[in-house]
Design a protein around this nucleic acid. Structure first.
Lengths: 167, 167
DNA sequence: GCTTGTGATGTTACACTATACCATTTATGA
DNA sequence: TCATAAATGGTATAGTGTAACATCACAAGC
């Protein structure tokens, strides 16, 4: 990520103050866990921080590797447990297409997340599936299917990579 | 699948003549391959047939197991190659949520498939994401992201399992 | 303070999913 | 018929995920 200003990186695909974005998200998570009576343990906190550090999806083993460097859990279950906690409580999402995880950019709000995955640079942006579940609800309703969770993932090229490819 | 009539099963979640549904799909595939100059080899044909036999998503190793029984390829690559061919040419879809494959119920037509996955009985129905890619296009457009493929998968309970659970 | 129960963590071992790589065969067109 | 590309056969291994059990830490109640 070649950028001039040290603290300006890309959120999803838009510029923003990343340091601030990370610390703020961590504090918010801390607070929400306290309110909800959830234990925001060191491994969980660090796992979230690792995910927040980049707007890419990281594999469980990528996260594990970094946790290991700091003596926080050495085996796969450690990473999976922390990640499962984050996903279950809305602090992170699992990107099925990539078998990977990414920090949620709008935790706390109840939403149907949708992801834009750049197949070239690997960056991922989270947005919201516009009409919510509406997309598929009609079809589901007709057959009596009760939707509990919807997963929307789009694959393609981000603006930067489109430009790159156009040259 | 406890059903009275032998040839009536469930397409997605709706009743239909399954034998007919299988043979028709196979013939259609045969024809489309001939037209497109694709080679519909025995392994590929049989792999599609295996998928068509049930309206569930089968793992690559499930398919492999059945292929082995008939001497059509013994190693994982055999199954993955056949499945990749089917997916690449629109005869089947990959369900990311399940790391599994399912026969396409509307081959030939250009569509954005959406799946209803019952988390209890494992059956999967294919429908169409109503406003097509529209769901996510707005957000994508704003950031200059160029969508190439959209994946929509809903998880929940099918009508039968809702009834079951309600008891 | 002690106990006790619950949830979190540590650890081993293994199951499942997927692909890189190279050899061989088969079909197709020049 | 030969050259080429595509398909298949096969080995080995990489990558992803979890079951099962032991242990530990913490908070609630005695």
């Amino acid at each position: 990520m070649p950028l001039a200003a040290p603290s300006a990186e890309t959120l999803g695909f838009a510029r923003h103050d990343h340091n601030h974005c990370v610390s703020e998200a961590l504090e918010a998570a801390e607070e929400r866990c306290a309110d909800a009576g959830l234990r925001f343990t060191p491994v969980r906190r660090r796992a979230l921080e690792i995910l927040l550090e980049e707007h890419r999806a990281l594999g469980a083993y990528d996260v594990l590797e970094r946790l290991q460097e700091e003596g926080l859990g050495a085996q796969p279950p450690a990473a999976y447990r922390a990640l499962d906690f984050l996903v279950a409580n809305g602090f992170a999402h699992r990107i099925e297409r990539l078998n990977a995880f990414i920090a949620c950019t709008q935790p706390g709000e109840d939403h149907v997340p949708a992801f834009l995955i750049c197949r070239t640079c690997g960056r991922v942006a989270e947005t919201v599936a516009m009409p919510g579940k509406g997309v598929i609800e009609a079809a589901a309703g007709a057959t009596g299917f009760r939707i509990e969770r919807v997963l929307v993932e789009a694959e393609g090229l981000c603006a930067d990579c489109v430009t790159e490819a156009g040259r």
